[in-house]
Simulated assay, not measured.
Amino acid sequence: MTAEIERAAHAYCPVCTPDPGRGDLVTALCGATHPYWGRRERPVNNCPACEALAANTVYPCGHTGSER
Rank of each mutant, 00 (worst) to 15 (best):
A3S: 11
N45C: 05
P48I: 10
Y12S: 04
R39E: 13
T57A: 15
R22T: 10
Y12T: 06
W37G: 13
C30N: 07
A52M: 04
R42W: 07
C50N: 12
L25F: 09
V26E: 03
P14L: 02
T17D: 04
E41D: 15
G31H: 01
P48L: 14
G21R: 13
A52T: 12
L29N: 02
Y59E: 06
E41C: 05
S66N: 08
G65T: 05
R42A: 14
G23A: 05
R40D: 13
R39A: 11
N46D: 11
C61S: 06
R42Q: 12
C47V: 05
G62I: 01
A54T: 04
V44N: 08
I5E: 15
P48K: 11
P18I: 01
T64C: 05
G65R: 15
A49S: 11
T33K: 12
M1P: 03
V15W: 01
A8S: 15
R22P: 03
Y36K: 00
C47Q: 07
C30E: 07
V26H: 02
T33N: 07
D19E: 13
P20D: 07
R42L: 14
R68V: 10
T33C: 12
Y59M: 06
A32W: 11
A32D: 10
P60I: 11
C50I: 13
C50E: 09
C47W: 06
E67V: 02
Y59A: 04
L29G: 01
C30P: 02
N45R: 11
R7G: 00
I5H: 09
L53I: 06
C13W: 00
R68I: 09
T27G: 06
R40P: 00
G23C: 03
I5T: 12
V58H: 14
V44P: 02
T2A: 11
T27C: 08
V15I: 07
N45P: 00
G21Y: 01
L25T: 11
A8H: 04
P18L: 04
G38Y: 02
G21I: 01
L25H: 08
G31R: 01
P43E: 07
A49P: 00
R39G: 08
Y36F: 15
P20M: 08
T57G: 12
P18K: 09
T2D: 14
V44T: 13
H63F: 09
A32P: 00
L25W: 09
A28I: 02
A49Y: 07
E6S: 10
T2L: 08
C13A: 05
G21M: 05
A55T: 05
P14F: 02
R40Y: 08
Y59I: 03
I5A: 14
A28F: 00
A9I: 00
T33S: 15
Y12A: 09
T57I: 08
H34A: 15
D24C: 00
P43V: 02
G21E: 11
A8D: 03
N45F: 08
R42S: 10
A55L: 08
A9H: 12
H10D: 02
A3H: 08
T2Q: 09
C16V: 01
A54Q: 09
V58A: 13
T33L: 08
A28D: 02
H10N: 03
A28E: 03
